[in-house]
Design a protein around this nucleic acid. Structure first.
Lengths: 326, 326
DNA sequence: AGCACGCTAGCAAGCGTTTTCCAGACCGGT
DNA sequence: ACCGGTCTGGAAAACGCTTGCTAGCGTGCT
């Protein structure tokens, strides 16, 4: 069993017959020049000794950990998992590493996790779909919200409204006149969710009335219940727009169980566009969130800084598959 | 904009009129007693000043970061996402935090990520389904492999063989006589994968011949291709056992596209049991990996230590849904 | 009265880095 | 010869924390 081998920079210095400062210069490839042969000796020592720099010491000295904190409501949710992956990719590419954790959609857990991450001295915080407005007054590090706008920090999110509008418009072009809506989450403070707005936009633009709506949690089960609700509506929709993939999958199940066919009897459109939707039956037509671009921008803002607090939105992609009737 | 406010333990000590040591004693609730009134004064100072301990300094001094490194082949894979969530939950409960990253199934990326995490001084390493046998000779910290056994470290994994056997046995009890197999990954070093073994066990036990098999990547696309392959087999199976959820979903699609019905024409059984399978159409009967138990044990071994290197296996759950014909 | 001990709190070393400041060596130019 | 400049390397402080050691001081026991 390999015993702990804390070979420090001191050992390297000694072995190479130089001072610790010199070792520092060579491992950091800093502005300081060091004679080629000395450098070689140090490199050799590092190799032989199997020296690995200690990032915590470095962090203490430098005051930065090159580590991000990422909090999602639920790491098991495919959307957040894909987002986390995109963020990890961006962060890795720039030498950062990410501490990821779930808040379970609970404000106090969320606040506790934020505190924990701050203690860990993260260099930046990514809050995915945070619950309430978390207390960010004393964080002292850059924070960016994803998929939700917060009062005091910048945010990135898809163009929910325009994306929803485009998707529903597509449904209308397929000839649908009664289009139901599965809308997510608990009423977000009176303000109608953007996806609902987009749905209505498209309807109005075509001179159509609102179809039936059902409110549901952002889960497959929620979508399933909402789907059943919509199917039982007095004016049964011929198409349903679900605010999330998870809900759409639930809706699909409700439709199947009712013995109806997609898209022949009812078309379905989902917002998000995670991998799961490509292999549902039928494959779902989706409005895809540009996760990669959002991740890139979020990470970049954390690292490169930003001139001002702003909410950035990103255009979505309408991906046509079978569930809309294409 | 909140400026960086590095209020240190020195400030607290000064404000409370005590030495820094005392502050340390109270924040750590350590073995050292401090007079109640002094403690109150310190607590008050901490509150007023908004002091937050610096974990990197603590880590440097103590030699432990209370941080784990978690490497999965793909953070976007729902199985790994659910596993990561379970690990995060366990770790959080014990005051640890986890650095999560993906290796993309690439051995050199994997090795690089391991190195990066070691530099970060993680207190333990969780390797999920690592690629080759990574070089673990000089890590100096506890490592545990998940879902794969590695030569030099302990591992936790589901009872692949027994689980597969139980699942296939169930298929046989439904009357199936020709049961196909979708097996994952590239030939793992000559040794037949455990799930394949379990499948064959059940078949033999019932006096049945092997059904057709198809090798595929652990992805929906891979499962889809394999599904088509199996459907075209000279002796078409009446049931298919897929080594993973992802593959099963692909198989489902292949079956649907062929105009066949599940489970009437062909039954399907999947290994893994992620949430996605509950809402596929039809809902998939699955052999579920006990992710929570595995996560708990893995984390516990990392924190509490272990007496010896061993490979732990955990019984799976057979969850009966529609795809098997139940 | 003397002493040992328990309780509380302070001092200071040290964890592994980075970085500032300085020192020596060498060079070319006067 | 001397001086200024360039190049290379070393000494040491500081980052914020933990902890062993020490000290002051009441209290109870002999």
């Amino acid at each position: 069993m390999p015993k702990a081998t804390p070979v420090t920079r001191n050992d390297v210095a000694q072995y190479a017959g130089v001072s610790t400062a010199v070792v520092s210069y060579v491992v950091n490839e800093g502005p300081r020049r060091v004679a080629p042969e000395t450098r070689e000796r140090v490199l050799e020592a590092i190799r032989v000794l199997g020296y690995r720099p200690n990032a915590t010491a470095r962090a203490l000295r430098m005051g930065t950990t090159r580590t991000f904190g990422l909090i999602t409501p639920d790491g098991g949710n495919p959307l957040f998992a894909e987002l986390a992956k995109a963020i990890d990719k961006e962060a890795s590419a720039r030498g950062y590493v990410v501490l990821q954790t779930s808040a379970d959609g609970d404000p106090v857990t969320e606040q506790a996790k934020i505190a924990e991450l701050l203690i860990r001295q993260v260099s930046g915080l990514l809050l995915v779909a945070p619950t309430e407005d978390p207390d960010l007054t004393e964080v002292g590090i850059p924070v960016i919200a994803i998929n939700r706008v917060l009062p005091t920090v910048s945010s990135v999110r898809p163009q929910y409204r325009a994306g929803a509008r485009a998707g529903v418009k597509h449904l209308i072009e397929h000839g649908h006149r009664t289009i139901g809506l599965v809308i997510g989450g608990r009423g977000t403070g009176g303000r109608a969710p953007e996806r609902e707005l987009g749905w209505r936009d498209a309807l109005r633009q075509a001179g159509l009335e609102d179809g039936p709506t059902a409110r549901a949690r952002f889960s497959r089960q929620g979508g399933y219940d909402a789907g059943k609700e919509l199917l039982a509506a007095t004016k049964r929709p011929t198409a349903i727009f679900a605010s999330s993939d998870l809900q759409a999958v639930g809706v699909l199940r409700a439709i199947h169980e009712a013995g109806l066919r997609v898209p022949d009897d009812i078309a379905v459109l989902a917002f998000d566009g995670t991998a799961e939707t490509e292999y549902s039956w039928p494959p779902l037509t989706v409005v895809r969130q540009p996760l990669d671009r959002m991740a890139r921008e979020a990470v970049s803002r954390l690292i490169d800084g930003e001139d001002a607090v702003q909410s950035l939105t990103y255009p979505t992609d309408l991906i046509l598959r079978k569930s809309c009737g294409c």
